[in-house]
Amino acid sequence: MAPIDNPVLPPGSTILVTGVNGFIASVVADVLLSHGYNVRGTVRDTAKHAWMASHFEHKHGAGRFELVHVANISAPGAFDAAMQDVTGVAHVAAIMNHDPDPNNVVPPSLEAINSVLESAAKTPSVKRFVLTSTGMTVRSVDSRDHVVLTQASWNETSVERAWKPPPYEPERGLEVYGAAKVATEKAMWKFVEERKPAFACNSVLPAFTFGRLLSPEHQGTPSSTQFVAALFKGDMQVLAHMTSLIKCFGYSDVDDVAYLHLAGLIHPDVQGQRLWAYDKSYHWNDLLAVFRKNFPDRQFVDDVAGVFRDPAENQPAQKSNEILRDFGRPGLAEMEDSIVKWIPQFI
């Protein structure tokens, strides 16, 4: 019997999705609704994101989705009210201000994960908890050594770089983001080890994420989609900063990321796992090659200098492929297939 037919959480129950207006979180909510779950999504401004309620009501029916206001995800008890009667939590919300000072990012990120975990621990109905982590918890963006990545791999390089003494140059923002994500995910596993909550925890590790938008009109080019769109359109003003910092990256299709969240919430055999949402290593010129091959009538910018592919062997990706196939999906999407399918949203 496929796990979709034998879920840990009963269809019809309510899942809390934090930061539901975000690119990944919005697709997580859509996938959950598509599989019979109700979703309660937290946002800082319910009026601004009211379009989501209308969108989901039209697609999935009335009474399946609700927005709730959480002003400060780092505040103690911030999620207490939103947590009531939910069976699972997808904690997708994160501090994404690109601040290069780790003192302004890491402590509030730790406060946020501890706040939502404490709220979940006080809620008897919660049976599963999934944290949206990142591939940067495993590997720094400029690593070139050949290693085998495992469930025990951590990116201590970004942690060390993030906490170097000031001045806090703007370029450090990416390392600070990675350090905050490492601290956040480690805090969740420490909570599990020390507190032994009644719910099982998993994490999902997306890399450079692209894919479908719920509403291009309302979402624009959120998160990492902006860099693919900018490269496609030749907007080097947007790309200059990222291409100078990032020379290689993993690739994730947002639907794969969302389905791994679903697995972390309902798959009976997925407990205490870090779920990789990417496999191969790519660089900007790989994207440009995809564009030139599939859109031959368009002109694109010249190849970017200094790029490389990470030689690390991504062992845990095989488990993610197996899990996705349990849900009737082919496994982690190939970058070219995903890009060609979804780039028309931005043309």
Rank of each mutant, 00 (worst) to 15 (best):
A152E: 13
S34Y: 05
P222E: 09
Q318M: 10
R212L: 15
R274A: 01
H55A: 14
E217R: 12
L265Y: 08
I113C: 15
K181Q: 09
N103A: 14
W342G: 08
K319R: 12
A333L: 07
W276F: 15
V39C: 05
Q226V: 11
T14N: 06
R298H: 14
E175L: 00
S119N: 10
G61E: 07
V130M: 14
N285V: 00
D145P: 01
K164R: 15
F249H: 04
P311F: 01
N114Q: 14
V307Q: 11
S281Q: 03
V257M: 06
N21C: 04
D326T: 05
A333D: 05
M236E: 11
A29Q: 15
P216I: 14
A263Y: 04
L324T: 08
G19V: 11
T123G: 14
R40C: 14
A305W: 00
A50E: 09
P222Y: 03
R128Q: 13
N97I: 15
W284A: 06
T87Q: 15
S74L: 09
R212Y: 11
S54I: 06
K247G: 09
T123Y: 07
D310N: 13
Q219E: 14
K319G: 12
N21P: 11
M83I: 15
R128D: 08
R292L: 09
N314S: 07
S143F: 02
R40Q: 14
N314C: 10
E169P: 07
S252Q: 05
D101N: 12
D142T: 15
Q219D: 06
H261Q: 13
S224H: 09
L32D: 15
T157P: 10
A179E: 05
A312W: 02
N294I: 03
D256V: 00
G63H: 04
